[in-house]
Design a protein around this nucleic acid. Structure first.
Lengths: 339, 339
DNA sequence: AAAATTTAGTCAATCGTTTGCGCAAGTTTA
DNA sequence: TAAACTTGCGCAAACGATTGACTAAATTTT
């Protein structure tokens, strides 16, 4: 029932003014040593902790940052948030958290709640549905900096940390080539999202470099549902010259693809080599893991994104902030993992 | 750059006092209809949102609740937090989030940060390491109610939502019995944690009910690491009469157990039926899913836990709060799922 | 010894919002 | 028509912490 102690309580007990207490706790030089120590001792004794809500008034900082992810049930994001959280904690920031569940409406609702709570900054991975950006651009008005993580916005002059999969895709195809595969198929994600475009660019580049022509029959598309992936697989397996390697958009698509392949009697990873992105932990337990997978280091990316955001916040505070210098774009290289 | 509008700004523009604006926005009866509407219209126009940090001063509520989970990478918790979040949002609460990573030190650190941010309440699933409770009991002093979720504290008079696995375990064993299995082994988790005790109680009850004596050779223990599970399996398979069914502490243990069994040439789910708890989504993709699994409905439990917490907060606010009435213990029944 | 400077502290305003109290009109009751 | 309410609104304090301006005492300088 005893309340959280305040600066006033300390002042009362020591018979000094609140300003003296405040200055003593902030180690202001104008406070005498004895007074300062008496105050600091009592503060320690009472377990005094400053009230961030009160400080917010004066300093206009809450030391709270918003984090919006599509859904933590996905392995990539659950690892990402650990990195995000660790860095935030280290720097004394706390996290307001919400999931968009890949709905733009939910994304807006969560964001609104966070703005109302007066977050200092936002770290977000966009929902798949997000194709309008007013709600995010509006943050500029409120002076809330944004760093995009993995699913980044398509405009410049904002903070971004992501993993360019273009080069990684090229590496993956080079490796499949070395295994003697030539009919390398690709089940890509929805055309609209940036992740699909990157992968496609890498695919085309790699195939072209081999001086082969890109056979568009080898490229299918899935809406990431099991059904969508099944349809894509159906088309690929029914080709008169079916593929000898299949790259899936991610490990979840891979699982659905392999499920169908097994159903159709394909000798998985022999007749057809399967490759994928993301490297979910469950891979080591699945019946047919991809032969090669492209790790995107979500924990590391999460750390970097939060570090970037905190940098920006610190610069804003110290007045050394400038759009041009502070908004970085970090491309984390992806890495092949052989299973 | 335009700042977030305040009540003052509205007062200035309409040439009334701030108190009038405040009352108008809160629909106070002493404000005239015309004035009230003019204020409400302008507020809508300016997109006014009250500043929760300021309200906190007067009302001592932040509309922020803390949520601490061991780690969202676990399927159970990632589903749980969705339920938690959905209910919180519905009631206008925002979530401060942190993971303990199953470390009591991290749990304390995260909790401290949340208390400093003045959360209204806490929803927590304890870390595996947590065997002392001072940091949680201290919340009482600060008048912060706690609801425990799944990994609950061992004392009474606090809110708890969890899934009693005792009955579920009994059901599971009954079912295995019906399949003709008699040598039903059990790989339990660490003795200290409540979850292990419950499962064990259910195991003993079920076996006893069948008028069989409990053979302690059939009960092994794992620290939940792959290595620990491997050792447990080794002992079970080396028995002169090895088991014809194995129940694992959860699906992760199951995966490790099955991996070892396959390695030893066991005909999984024929020679030995495998059963487990938790029902992770990845099950449908794994090579050897448990034949039967006990679902604990994490999303539903998450919802119920947050509903309980918000109830308590509302009661505190309205003064109708009383320890005895408000702290509930909800046992969600588990359900068998056949794969 | 008077003037100037340093030292150690207090006062009061401020941030955004709520709320008890007061006050001046207008309206009803006796 | 005076007394008693009612209606509609403003004043000012309060919440916790910070900070520029100020003051009184102690110390140094001339």
């Amino acid at each position: 029932m005893s309340d959280i102690p305040t600066i006033k309580e300390i002042a009362r007990q020591l018979n000094v003014s609140v300003s003296t207490v405040s200055r003593a706790l902030n180690d202001h030089p104008r406070i005498g040593l004895k007074t300062k120590q008496a105050i600091q001792n009592l503060a320690r004794e009472l377990n005094y902790e400053p009230n961030p809500k009160a400080i917010f008034f004066k300093q206009k900082r809450s030391f709270v940052v918003g984090v919006i992810l599509p859904l933590v049930a996905e392995d990539f994001f659950s690892k990402g948030i650990s990195g995000i959280e660790d860095v935030a904690m280290q720097h004394g920031y706390t996290i307001l958290f919400g999931q968009s569940h890949d709905s733009i409406e939910k994304e807006k609702a969560v964001l609104k709640a966070m703005v109302n709570q007066r977050i200092d900054g936002l770290l977000i991975s966009l929902s798949k549905e997000t194709n309008r950006y007013e709600h995010l651009l509006a943050l500029d008005k409120y002076n809330i900096p944004v760093v995009y993580f993995d699913r980044v916005a398509p405009f410049e002059n904002v903070g971004k940390v992501f993993c360019s999969l273009e080069k990684g895709t090229t590496q993956m195809i080079d490796w499949l080539f070395k295994q003697g595969r030539r009919r390398i198929a690709f089940i890509n994600g929805p055309d609209e999202i940036a992740a699909s475009k990157e992968r496609m660019a890498g695919y085309i580049e790699a195939i072209s470099k081999k001086r082969l022509k890109v056979d568009m029959q080898m490229v299918e598309r899935t809406d990431l549902s099991e059904e969508g992936t099944r349809e894509a697989m159906e088309k690929l397996l029914n080709l008169k010259k079916p593929p000898d390697a299949i790259i899936s958009f991610n490990d979840y698509v891979h699982l659905d693809a392999v499920k169908y392949a097994v159903h159709k009697g394909v000798n998985v990873n022999e007749d057809i080599l399967f490759a994928s992105y993301a490297n979910i932990s469950a891979n080591k337990y699945t019946a047919y893991p991809p032969v090669v997978s492209l790790d995107q280091f979500p924990y590391k990316q999460g750390r970097m994104a939060m570090e970037m955001l905190i940098d920006i916040l610190d610069q804003k505070q110290s007045g050394t902030y400038s759009d041009a210098l502070s908004f970085n774009k970090i491309e984390v290289p992806a890495m092949l993992v052989y299973n």
